[in-house]
């Protein structure tokens, strides 16, 4: 039975599935990592993902109804716009009103869950399929045996997610904006004395985080070609956990997302091939979450979070 799993085709399919599976987690976690590096925790990632997912789905559901604007790019841009709007709302709550970040994030989550549920029921009703993003095989790279199928035959949002890893790494570590993000996340008072506009930097980080969370929702919809109430099913919370898993570094976040995706896709393959079934099947289904908890426990003992995480900044205080 196990020999069925250890065949080239199954292993290639499992690894390709892991890359695809990890994409929404990676996008959302990258954005959350940027936000947390600036000192802002957003537990509302799940709600923003849902809003982004519903927006992309709604635009794609009836593309002709939107005229020239009913294309794929419009759906993704609309999701991004919704993410930015939710980012502005969250920034107002946390930066202007200095609301407690944990509670505010849960409020955003509940709002996203309820709003998309309501909008779906009233505006859509039956979960009809849409035409999502098709895989694009990258010329030359996609022809490399096995590796091409694993890494270079995915839709554009999958590629974008992985391209964003070095981009965000460079932004955080090599740009003035990134330096300021780290500064306001560690010692906002010191950054302020050096002339850094703490809240403006945090606003930028929040907007990046929310835009990527909404994009993660759009990626989920474009991969599954469907929307349903609570589509994300906890993925946003797992993305927050992956930020800790990755020690607030884009590379670490990617490693965590890929590990989570790999365990999930391996479990799926094992069950699909009938290698695990019955009680073992139920137990293996817990493996991804269990692994995340174990690694979080280990990582959290070794690495400290940004010093000013969840701490609001008020220069007049």
């Amino acid at each position: 039975m196990w020999s069925d799993f250890f065949t080239t085709s199954v292993i290639v399919a499992t690894l390709a599935s892991a890359v695809r599976f990890a994409t929404p987690f990676l996008l959302a976690a990258l954005g959350e990592a940027v936000g947390q590096r600036s000192g802002v925790l957003n537990l509302g990632v799940e709600g923003v993902m849902l809003c982004g997912a519903f927006t992309a789905y709604y635009v794609r559901l009836n593309p002709s109804g939107w005229g020239w604007a009913g294309g794929m790019a419009t759906a993704i841009l609309a999701a991004l716009a919704v993410g930015l709007c939710m980012g502005l709302l969250y920034a107002w709550m946390t930066l202007v009103m200095h609301a407690e970040q944990g509670i505010s994030g849960i409020g955003i989550f509940l709002f996203g869950l309820g709003a998309t549920d309501l909008l779906f029921q009233k505006q859509v009703g039956v979960p009809l399929p849409i035409s999502g993003l098709r895989p694009i095989r990258i010329p030359l790279l996609g022809d490399i045996p096995h590796v091409g199928d694993i890494l270079f035959n995915h839709n554009v949002l999958v590629y974008l997610a992985y391209v964003l890893v070095p981009v965000i790494t460079l932004m955080v570590n090599r740009t003035t904006f990134g330096l300021n993000i780290r500064a306001v996340g560690e010692t906002p008072e010191a950054a302020d004395t050096l002339g850094v506009n703490v809240n403006l930097i945090r606003l930028g980080a929040i907007l990046i985080g929310n835009a990527l969370a909404a994009l993660a929702g759009a990626a989920l919809v474009m991969n599954t070609n469907i929307f349903q109430q609570n589509l994300t099913a906890g993925q946003g919370f797992i993305a927050v956990a992956l930020v800790y898993f990755g020690a607030w570094r884009p590379g670490g976040v990617m490693a965590g997302a890929l590990l989570f995706g790999l365990v999930s896709s391996t479990v799926l393959q094992l069950k699909t091939l009938g290698i695990v079934s019955g009680a073992a099947s139920a137990l293996t289904a817990m493996a991804p979450a269990l692994l995340t908890i174990v690694v979080l426990v280990i990582v959290s003992r070794r690495i400290g979070q940004p010093s000013a995480l969840t701490r609001p900044f008020d220069r007049n205080a």
Binding site: S9, A13, S17, A233, S264, L268, S277, A282
Partner: peptide, 25 residues
């Protein structure tokens, strides 16, 4: 007949990947 119980009544994304795994097999 490959049977995959995904251990969830509501996880649409997992059902999607399970279907993909079936097709790949």
């Amino acid at each position: 007949v490959n049977v995959n119980y995904i251990e969830s009544f509501s996880d649409v994304a997992l059902a999607s990947e399970a279907a993909t795994a079936h097709i790949q097999n």
